[in-house]
């Protein structure tokens, strides 16, 4: 048995391994918050008893192997194209709970057109946008979400506004789109924030279930490896540097809970 297998409960378990996660150890670096995001999504799928009707679409980035870790049907899209692929899946399987899981390079750079137009069409899909302000998988290049002055391997002297522009705030941008029903930003840097993130993940899936339109949860995340920090310092960096540049909050929510059918 894998060391990750749940122990036989002697008492009532209050915390256990989500059913919607496989028991495959992840390849993420120590301290990377991708794992937390995975777990939250899996817990919500379990709570909604949706494991057998969920279809995930993995993107290209460190989370390219997300399909190994979720025990649900999965597709793996081309870089940036997950929202388009999810559109195809959802249109022909409207009963399925369809989500994409995308990094900032994937969603905000190469896939900017696909995410925008999925929102414009009001696609009934749920998007989890893991924003760690850098390209993790390819070894730490600049992303559209890289902070001004932040050094990366492709902005070795720091991100310079004159030649590289400044941060792209996707949640604020997508909230402008009529077809978007639910767009919020949360963070994974401490327990309180993680709990809030989970609530938002739940709400984003419910919005899809209720047919209200496109839903996205942006999750501020860490990349200790490419930021060159300890996991702990990286969480501090989210709190102190990223949150000011990417304010947490609800940018668009369905008008009232009543209207939302809740």
């Amino acid at each position: 048995m894998s060391v990750l297998a749940p122990p036989e409960p002697a008492l009532t378990p209050v915390y256990s391994y989500p059913d919607a996660l496989t028991h495959v150890p992840t390849h993420y670096c120590p301290g990377c918050t991708h794992g937390i995001a995975h777990r939250l999504i899996a817990e919500v799928i379990d709570e909604m008893a949706a494991k057998e009707r969920t279809i995930g679409v993995a993107s290209v980035g460190c989370s390219v192997f997300a399909y190994r870790y979720f025990g649900v049907d999965f597709a793996q899209a081309a870089h940036g194209r997950a929202p388009a692929m999810a559109t195809g899946v959802k249109r022909v399987r409207p009963e399925a709970l369809v989500f994409t899981y995308q990094g900032d390079g994937d969603l905000a750079s190469i896939g900017a057109a696909e995410i925008l137009h999925a929102a414009v069409r009001g696609e009934q899909i749920t998007v989890f946008f893991v924003n760690n302000a850098i390209y993790g998988m390819t070894g730490g290049q600049m992303a559209p979400t890289t902070l001004l002055g932040q050094t990366t391997t492709s902005s070795p002297a720091g991100r310079d506004r004159a030649t590289m522009g400044t941060v792209l705030r996707m949640s604020e941008l997508l909230a402008q789109v009529d077809g978007a029903a639910y767009v919020v930003r949360r963070s994974l840097h401490d327990v309180v924030q993680i709990k809030r993130a989970k609530k938002a993940i739940r709400r984003a899936f419910e919005v899809q279930e209720q047919g209200l339109g496109f839903a996205m949860v942006e999750l501020l995340s860490s990349c200790p490896t490419n930021w060159g920090m300890t996991p702990e310092a990286a969480l501090g960096y989210i709190r102190d540097e990223m949150v000011p540049a990417f304010p947490l909050g609800d940018f668009k929510v369905p008008e009232t809970r009543a209207e939302a059918g809740a």
């Binding site: 750079s109 070894g139 290049q141």
Partner: peptide
């Protein structure tokens, strides 16, 4: 350019 392995060192060299 745009980062992609196994070519990215070229982009990084150009960035400097």
């Amino acid at each position: 350019g745009y980062p992609i392995t196994p070519q990215t060192e070229a982009l990084e060299h150009m960035a400097v």
